[in-house]
């Protein structure tokens, strides 16, 4: 895998955009998932995920080959997500309302068109509640929780992505878990 990525990056450095396309194919779901869980909105997630890959391409010369490519890509993505969250904070409640209604229409569309069994609807509602609980976390805890439990990364890798000591990552992980527990205990 790493050998393959390294080869592709060399081709990208020579200017081959198709090689970059292959890199995008490999990481797109991971990057999109990170954005979606951080932002809670599909359009924004797509926008930020695209921006992350674009930045990776434009700055590929700054990538250090001795480090993991995924760590570097996740760092770009996480930083962009956190920037986006900070920018939209003032009208957070307005956004939340719009997101809520969006999901509602989405749910009703799916439910009416394919007649989902009750169980499945419940499952989707549960997923939505979990997503809302994640969105309630302050972004510094949110990023750590998502990277750890959705992207399945080690504490050391997360420290590399967020550019902070391992001890800090652990502390945030502990606090993030406690905050999640408070939001999710009722489920």
């Amino acid at each position: 895998m790493d050998v393959f990525i390294r080869k592709k990056i060399r081709q990208v450095l020579k200017g081959d955009q198709n090689a970059f396309g292959e890199i995008v194919e490999i990481y797109k779901d991971k990057v999109y998932q990170l954005c979606y869980r951080m932002l809670g909105n599909r359009h924004e997630a797509e926008d930020v995920a695209q921006e992350a890959f674009l930045r990776a391409y434009l700055n590929i010369r700054r990538y250090d080959e001795n480090r993991k490519f995924s760590t570097w890509l996740y760092r770009i993505t996480t930083n962009l997500c956190i920037d986006r969250i900070r920018k939209k904070k003032p009208d957070y409640h307005l956004d939340a309302d719009i997101e809520g209604s969006e999901n509602l229409t989405l749910y009703s569309q799916i439910a009416s068109s394919s007649h989902l069994p009750e169980q499945e609807v419940e499952h989707m509602e549960l997923q939505e509640s979990i997503q809302q609980a994640i969105l309630k976390l302050p972004e510094k805890y949110r990023a750590v929780i998502i990277l750890k439990y959705m992207e399945e990364l080690s504490v050391e890798e997360i420290a590399g992505i967020l550019d902070m000591p391992v001890g800090t990552v652990k502390t945030r992980l502990h606090r993030g878990r406690e905050a999640l527990r408070k939001h999710l205990r009722k489920l």
């Binding site: 779901d29 999109y32 998932q33 549960l126 997923q127 979990i130 959705m150």
Partner: peptide, 11 residues
């Protein structure tokens, strides 16, 4: 719960 959400969205 959080783990259960992983890989449920695709680009």
């Amino acid at each position: 719960f959080v783990r259960g959400l992983s890989n449920s969205v695709k680009a």
